[in-house]
């Protein structure tokens, strides 16, 4: 199976071409605002490296979040555009899963952290299993203190990965069972592995139903003064 993985849900953008379980080419760049300029040239570069033509693709795996909304949409729109050109599936994968898979260790509980700004972080918890990890929680948006409380309440050793650099300084101080580690951003190679698992088990929706994982409603308030329907002649 030949597929492309697209990762643009965080400041780190990357793409990977994968055949079965083998990564044939990958490219990455860290630039929060540059995903749209990076993506297609990087895909083009990888295809040239490997010698594939676009029509060889069987599926596109894409990170649907949680993460930066604009980055997620650039990635998803690109994936949808590629997939629509040949009628191939779009397989959504989530950023926290890709982080955990890349960080897999022998025994520690893994906590993945994605900065979604405005003081909140998307987090998820994973349990190590031979060769991988299993998600033990849903993905939720929390304040940093909540993350600390959850780790504290959990017995055993923990590994905290993802955008830990954005967490408040000293958040985990005194918590000796927990250790921070890399990777900071999810990477297309790990995302591809998450996506391949879902693809092989037919665990993906129809293309039109692939949606970003926002975890938050748009930040807008209804401006009643602006939409007031009442005028001098009565309600409009």
């Amino acid at each position: 199976m030949k597929f492309l993985a697209i990762e643009t849900a965080t400041p780190g953008a990357s793409v990977a071409l994968v055949e079965d379980a083998t990564t044939l080419a990958a490219a990455s760049r860290i630039d929060r605002l540059g995903h749209a300029t990076f993506l297609v040239p990087a895909i083009d570069f990888c295809f040239h490296q490997v010698g594939w033509s676009p029509s060889d693709l069987e599926a596109v795996v894409v990170d649907v979040g949680p993460g930066l909304y604009t980055g997620i949409r650039v990635g998803l729109a690109t994936a949808q555009g590629l997939a629509a050109a040949f009628g191939i599936p779009v397989v959504p994968a989530v950023s926290v899963d890709a982080l955990a898979l890349e960080a897999r260790t022998g025994h520690r509980t893994i906590w993945t952290v994605v900065d979604v700004r405005r003081g909140e972080f998307a987090i998820a918890r994973y349990r190590p299993v031979p060769g991988g990890v299993v998600r033990d929680s849903s993905t939720e948006l929390v304040k940093p203190e909540v993350l600390r409380a959850q780790i504290e309440a959990r017995p055993g050793q923990s590994l905290v990965v993802g955008d830990v650099a954005q967490l408040p300084e000293g958040l985990l101080s005194g918590l000796h069972r927990a250790k921070m580690a890399k990777p900071r951003y999810p990477y297309a190679v790990a995302l591809a592995e998450v996506g391949r698992g879902r693809y092989e088990r037919d665990l993906y929706p129809a293309p039109d139903d692939v949606r970003p994982l926002y975890l938050r409603e748009p930040d807008v308030t209804i401006n009643w003064a602006k939409i007031r329907q009442e005028g001098p002649w009565g309600s409009g």
Partner: peptide
Amino acid sequence: GALLVGHSFAKATAWA
């Protein structure tokens, strides 16, 4: 954010 959706989709389709 709106421009990026159509532009990205279009570029990807063209490349493909």
